[in-house]
Design a protein around this nucleic acid. Structure first.
Lengths: 362, 362
DNA sequence: TGATGAGGTGAGACCGGTCTCAATCTTGAG
DNA sequence: CTCAAGATTGAGACCGGTCTCACCTCATCA
């Protein structure tokens, strides 16, 4: 109905040229600001253009030049503030060079991701920024890159070689999390993540190039430093839904020897875990200690304020965008933003309440 | 550098046609699934196509048909979970009809909004979903619509006539907020919003067609019901930055007769106000009551759990998308999602501490 | 048996830009 | 004053699809 059809047809270069009494080529040059154009022609064309309300057709432009002015961004969950913030970083950076962002949400679903990539390439975006949902099944990304498309990964890496990947450095912070907890006297430390993993966690298991892998490894390292080992059965994955998360919490909190501390892999998990803890009437940090990844404002406002690992999410987005722009041949400031996570100690970690100590440490 | 150029040129219909030994027109028909094509030709073309790894060029398609498969979404702040959620709703709904989303963030800046609209139209998006940042300065939107483009507004309305607008119904909930507070005995009620308004608030001031207007009106109505009037100096706008928000809180909390309750216009404001309250060592609800708009998970986890106004943000997004799809001539389920806000009473509203009551009520 | 029409096909115009190429027009140097 | 370099210009091809139109082949019907 509300189709413009012929009715309100947009003015084209040809229209402008006709109105200005010059050739299409000259009008295009004047409008596009390329080639040689006399003052004369320039002014008369400009006049005709805004007389007709001419707006360049970006589609046509992209088609002829082969250069597109949009980039594709693929994330698992925009609703998650983590990605919201990263997206903001990407968008801000990329706009500066005149690109717009085509966004696709995949619900962390591999197939959706693959078809998103496909779709974006069909739209001939200039490049792709992707937070891959799997480290292993990545043929869609590899083939995209193989076909010569500019691809940058962020937040998570994949095993395939040769991918530009922008990630936050978690090794130090994760080790620190382990140390803080261990120093406070915790030994039964739970870890909850929404990452999809087949089967249950085992030491040395391949978790892909995800931040989760680094975070788990950090705690394991802290245990090793302390001459101890972390019970792998306390690492719970696949807590993507409310039910799964509740189940994971149940397994950690309702066992004969419940965990004395929980590390939450992201803010969504933290929200869920906090809810579960509250439901059980447990107090933080007297009954249970909590550490969460991602330092969003609300983490400071809960009672008690949460000890968290802050990460430069916005900067990660910007840096990913810059990496893509570089691939696209743009001159982008060389200095890279440092992407290091750091722990922010607040009040959600305490000493575990005295309880029949299990085996370790004498 | 990583330019595909000629090197890995994408296969085109012409290439496929050549490989299949048929005319370009036939190949196009087979590939595009239109017109009459024999089984014979169909199979040989399909074979040639995936032999060559043919991917249709969406750009070219859009150009020739004049139909685009992307829609533009313009919001003030993606980082804000409110818009993140709405965007999710829009995206989910629109995908179903095969559209992708081109997102532009405006930082609630009018000029940015205008140029975003411009840019998106140049990209020839099929339609626009916009959360306008001003109710008055809307020539960019009006002219877009006048030129025959499909435009749907959401979250906020504008004064210009004839715009499809999808908004949550706040009248009842806002009145209820006023009543709850008034019933609890509050008279000095502060309201904090990030909305940009010139000058300070006065009764009957035009706040545009924003949800904020409804929310303020609701409280005013509750006051009227109680035979009282709301002191307009307690309504603070323009709290967009941390500093501005701090200043607004200072004006409300540090006056001789500080407010006994604060209504926060959105979750970002709530975060800030809670921080300010905490900084002053005030207790909720003993020293001050708080009501916040937007029921995000964290509002239930702070101490005490916040009384909030829940609103169907995701559904609002979906409904906005549907409205646009309808304009675009798609058949979309007729039943509209109900978009009504409702109050969720938790524990952040209490009776104001006894203090020299001001003038009202006996 | 010839007219009718549906199904299948290819040639080529078209969408709205960019860009190459050759023609024309200015210059300034010699 | 002559000539070549450089500026300005227009014609038309091109990008990769869609779509119209004319034409061809059969099967069907009278």
């Amino acid at each position: 109905m509300t189709k413009r059809d012929q009715s309100v047809r947009e003015a084209t270069v040809a229209d402008v040229a006709r109105a200005a009494g010059v050739s299409k080529a000259q009008a295009a040059r004047a409008l596009g600001g390329y080639g040689a154009v006399s003052e004369q022609v320039l002014s008369v064309v400009i006049a005709a253009a805004d007389q007709l309300g001419y707006r360049p057709n970006q589609l046509a432009k992209s088609m002829t030049t082969g250069r597109s002015n949009s980039i594709g961004v693929v994330v698992g969950d925009i609703e998650n503030a983590h990605f919201g913030l990263a997206l903001r970083g990407i968008s801000d950076e990329v706009r500066r060079e005149g690109y717009t962002v085509v966004l696709v949400n995949t619900d962390e679903d591999l197939e959706a991701e693959a078809s998103a990539v496909q779709e974006l390439l069909q739209q001939r975006v200039a490049g792709l920024v992707v937070a891959p949902c799997s480290s292993n099944e990545t043929t869609h990304l590899e083939s995209a890159q193989a076909r010569g498309h500019a691809v940058v990964l962020f937040d998570r890496g994949i095993h395939a070689l040769d991918f530009d990947t922008v990630r936050v450095e978690f090794a130090d912070a994760a080790l620190e999390v382990g140390r803080v907890l261990l120093d406070a006297g915790h030994r039964r430390i739970g870890y909850v993540s929404s990452q999809r993993v087949g089967g249950s966690y085992e030491r040395g298991m391949d978790l892909g190039l995800s931040p989760v892998a680094d975070r788990v490894a950090g705690i394991e390292r802290a245990f090793a430093e302390a001459g101890d080992r972390w019970d792998p059965s306390l690492v719970r994955f696949n807590a993507a839904s409310d039910e799964a998360l509740a189940a994971a919490c149940a397994e950690l909190l309702d066992r004969p020897e419940p965990v004395t501390a929980v590390v939450c892999s992201d803010s969504l998990i933290a929200l869920g875990v906090l809810g579960q803890i509250k439901r059980r009437g447990l107090r933080i940090p007297e009954d249970i200690s909590v550490v969460a990844y991602d330092d969003f404002p609300w983490t400071e406002l809960v009672e008690p304020p949460l000890t968290v690992v802050a990460q430069p999410v916005y900067d990660m987005g910007r840096e990913a965008a810059r990496a893509l722009l570089r691939k696209l041949g743009h001159r982008v400031p060389a200095e890279r933003l440092p992407l290091r996570a750091h722990i922010v100690e607040r009040s959600s970690v305490g000493t575990p309440r005295a309880q029949p100590q299990p085996s370790p440490v004498r």
